[in-house]
């Protein structure tokens, strides 16, 4: 009796483990192929799936920047990388700072219209920004921001999901006594937020910063629509797009090397931050 039970248990466990390992394999395999292909020549890749890395990575990498060989001629991978950083870093900072400030105002202070403002922010969380792209282009035209980085950065000041998460965190993790004590010490209200409250919010801010960063870094739609014909302003996802649009000029080694270089920063960051990211995703679901 006992023996059959444990046999059944281990059988089930083995089956589940096999399924999980298969799924992990499925998740990693395309990236493995990507890495292998980045080290091979065009002819090797074109002949079918290869599983063993070659030694042409640096050759491929050089052709990425070689004016005669490169697939994307209007801008370089380096420029795309630089542009993505110029956009993403301030976007992340603005989103976290103003998201926290707004959430702080709604948690700590009592004022007329507070509940209305909060209800409003909650309600607009689900509205996608893609549907108002024509109007956003119009705003950029009026304000002369079309073809600049600004319309990709400034909208981050109003990120309802960040406000939502920061408020959730503050309700349990921010003690009003500390704020009261700082007031008695003569600290200004804005100073209290910057000097006292912000450091207490670090864990929540870190999680939110990762997601804000990734969302901005991976965004293809808005830069495509708002940067106009300024190819020198293109971002990394637009680099992938440019590779796709120039597929007539065949050099698979270079294509895969470019794609690998484009995703490498995110993969490396994920290796270090995966614990926090997985925890952050879990937090997203239990918000109801």
């Amino acid at each position: 009796m006992n023996k059959t039970y444990s046999n059944k248990t281990s059988g089930k466990k083995i089956f589940r483990t096999i399924v999980c390992i298969f799924l992990c394999f499925l998740a990693l395999f395309p990236f493995y192929i990507l890495i292998v292909n980045a080290t091979l020549r065009h002819a090797d890749i074109a002949s079918g799936i290869k599983l063993i890395p070659g030694k042409y990575f640096f050759t491929n990498f050089q052709s990425l920047f070689d004016p005669k060989k490169r697939i994307v001629s209007t801008f370089t991978l380096f420029e795309a990388f630089r542009n993505s950083i110029i956009i993403t870093v301030p976007t992340t900072i603005l989103q976290i700072y103003f998201g926290s400030l707004t959430a702080y105002a709604l948690t700590v202070y009592r004022f007329k219209g507070r509940d209305l403002a909060w209800g409003f922010i909650y309600a607009i969380m689900m509205i996608p920004t893609q549907v108002s792209i024509v109007g956003l282009i119009k705003v950029c035209k009026i304000t002369n921001m079309y073809g600049t980085f600004w319309p990709l950065i400034f909208p981050a000041i109003a990120a309802p999901t960040t406000v939502y998460f920061m408020k959730q965190y503050m309700e349990s993790g921010l003690s009003l006594e500390i704020i009261e004590a700082a007031r008695i010490d003569g600290c200004s209200e804005f100073g209290i937020f910057n000097i006292i409250a912000l450091p207490l919010l670090k864990p929540a801010m870190a999680t939110q910063a990762i997601f804000a960063f990734v969302a901005s870094w991976n965004n293809l739609y808005n830069p495509t629509m708002l940067l106009g014909s300024h190819t020198e302003l293109s971002t990394l996802p637009m680099y992938a797009q440019a590779i796709r649009n120039n597929d007539k000029r065949q050099d698979y080694g270079q294509v895969y090397t470019a794609l690998l270089c484009a995703i490498l920063p995110i993969i490396i960051a994920y290796l270090f931050l995966s614990k926090y990211i997985v925890a952050g995703v879990a937090l997203g679901g239990v918000k109801e």
Binding site: L101, A105, F111, T129, V139
Partner: peptide
Amino acid sequence: GKYGLFFIIPFFIAFIVFQ
């Protein structure tokens, strides 16, 4: 309370302009 109102102003300005 009035500080709360001040602090949510940037959010709502950005919201009105960009969304």
